[in-house]
Computed example of a mutant assay.
Amino acid sequence: MAKRTAVKRKGQAAKAGDGPNPRQPCPCGSGKRYKACHGVAGGVVDVPVARPFDGLAAECELVALREFVPSATAPLPLTVSAEREITLATVLPMAAAALVRSDGSVFVGMQVQTRSSDISRDLARAIRWALDAELGAVLPVVGPETADPDAATPDIERLQDLIDPNLQLEPELHTDFSWWIPADTEATGDVAMSLERANSAIMPTERLAPGAYWVDAGEKAHLRWTRAEPEERLLPALARLSARGELDLGEGSRYAGSFRAHGLLVPVWDLDRESHPREWTQPATELGERLETALASLEQEPLSGAERRARDGLIGRQITIR
């Protein structure tokens, strides 16, 4: 009886083979098998995605905009048909997930509250919402309930499905949040209060290189550099520079540590805040070149004892924020 049942089930599974293979990775990109994700009875399982922007050339910029760039916007051209232009923003009034202005322009926020464990899917949900929302509409929070149950496209879209994977973001940094308000419009009520609070808390920030930002944190300035290399390659390369005394940006700087954010490592350097941020552009470029050389050398030359000790020290100065 058991054998017959097994044969029967196998035949039924093969007959229903128009959909995804239950044992194959789910097409949503979660990393789980389809049968444990979107193929589960009753809908989607909220599977944590450790590296939500993996596969995108703009990954480092997206992580930076999500985590520590205070006020910035960037056009986000879509690969799907859309009548509205999308602008990606670090944060919107009241930390909204998206809004549609009266002129039809759309802003989608990065620093938002979410109700799922995949930021990439939430961004896709917010974009899809904004493309069809009424003028003047605001999406306060994004999550599974944002998806349209009657939509022709199932709720497995991610940002990777809506933009060119080779897209390079070029964020425009702002000194305040005045861009929240359209020209010839005055902020009132909650928006005015939110604008005042945001402007008072903003930290001066400048972009020195892709993924690399100078930030004035008050008592000191920092360079926060989001790197795309896997941590198991990046740390040995940083250790190699550290052992050689080459892991700084020159006088007035020192390596402070690193933090993990959305699957990437973000090394941080303390900088003399009396220096103009542009004075660090060339030193950062030279540091990047040294780091690339160190990464390449790992293929032929294993870490020495001193470099391994340096790596252990760098690991001790890591934290994870996402």
Rank of each mutant, 00 (worst) to 15 (best):
residue 4 R to T: 10
residue 8 K to D: 15
residue 8 K to A: 15
residue 11 G to S: 11
residue 13 A to H: 09
residue 15 K to S: 13
residue 16 A to D: 14
residue 17 G to L: 09
residue 19 G to Q: 03
residue 24 Q to E: 09
residue 24 Q to P: 07
residue 30 S to L: 07
residue 38 H to E: 14
residue 40 V to I: 09
residue 40 V to C: 06
residue 42 G to K: 12
residue 47 V to P: 01
residue 49 V to L: 02
residue 52 P to C: 04
residue 54 D to W: 03
residue 55 G to I: 06
residue 57 A to Q: 00
residue 59 E to W: 02
residue 65 L to P: 04
residue 67 E to G: 00
residue 68 F to A: 00
residue 73 T to S: 08
residue 75 P to M: 09
residue 76 L to Q: 14
residue 78 L to W: 06
residue 80 V to A: 14
residue 82 A to D: 10
residue 83 E to R: 08
residue 85 E to I: 15
residue 88 L to W: 11
residue 88 L to E: 07
residue 89 A to E: 09
residue 94 M to R: 11
residue 97 A to T: 15
residue 99 L to S: 15
residue 100 V to I: 13
residue 105 S to Q: 13
residue 110 M to L: 09
residue 114 T to S: 05
residue 117 S to Q: 15
residue 117 S to V: 09
residue 118 D to Q: 01
residue 120 S to F: 14
residue 121 R to Q: 14
residue 125 R to L: 00
residue 126 A to M: 02
residue 128 R to G: 14
residue 129 W to F: 08
residue 129 W to D: 07
residue 132 D to T: 00
residue 140 P to I: 02
residue 142 V to C: 03
residue 143 G to K: 12
residue 144 P to A: 13
residue 144 P to E: 08
residue 145 E to L: 07
residue 145 E to A: 06
residue 149 P to R: 03
residue 158 R to V: 08
residue 158 R to A: 09
residue 161 D to L: 01
residue 161 D to C: 05
residue 164 D to Q: 01
residue 164 D to S: 07
residue 165 P to K: 08
residue 168 Q to S: 02
residue 171 P to K: 04
residue 171 P to I: 01
residue 172 E to K: 12
residue 174 H to F: 01
residue 175 T to K: 02
residue 175 T to I: 12
residue 180 W to P: 04
residue 182 P to T: 01
residue 186 E to G: 12
residue 188 T to D: 04
residue 192 A to W: 04
residue 193 M to D: 06
residue 196 E to R: 12
residue 197 R to G: 14
residue 198 A to K: 12
residue 200 S to D: 10
residue 201 A to Y: 05
residue 201 A to T: 11
residue 203 M to T: 08
residue 205 T to P: 09
residue 210 P to S: 02
residue 211 G to R: 04
residue 211 G to E: 03
residue 211 G to F: 01
residue 213 Y to W: 07
residue 215 V to Q: 10
residue 217 A to H: 09
residue 218 G to A: 12
residue 219 E to R: 08
residue 226 T to P: 04
residue 231 E to A: 06
residue 234 L to H: 14
residue 234 L to T: 13
residue 239 A to T: 08
residue 241 L to G: 07
residue 243 A to T: 10
residue 243 A to F: 02
residue 245 G to H: 07
residue 246 E to Y: 09
residue 253 S to W: 03
residue 255 Y to W: 15
residue 256 A to D: 10
residue 259 F to L: 12
residue 261 A to L: 01
residue 261 A to N: 05
residue 264 L to F: 11
residue 264 L to I: 15
residue 264 L to G: 14
residue 265 L to W: 14
residue 267 P to Y: 07
residue 267 P to M: 03
residue 269 W to V: 11
residue 274 E to V: 13
residue 276 H to Y: 04
residue 277 P to V: 03
residue 279 E to I: 07
residue 280 W to E: 12
residue 286 E to S: 07
residue 287 L to G: 02
residue 288 G to A: 08
residue 290 R to D: 14
residue 292 E to K: 06
residue 294 A to T: 01
residue 294 A to K: 00
residue 296 A to S: 10
residue 297 S to Q: 03
residue 299 E to S: 13
residue 300 Q to R: 09
residue 301 E to N: 10
residue 301 E to L: 06
residue 304 S to D: 00
residue 305 G to S: 12
residue 309 R to E: 15
residue 312 D to W: 01
residue 322 R to P: 08
residue 322 R to F: 10
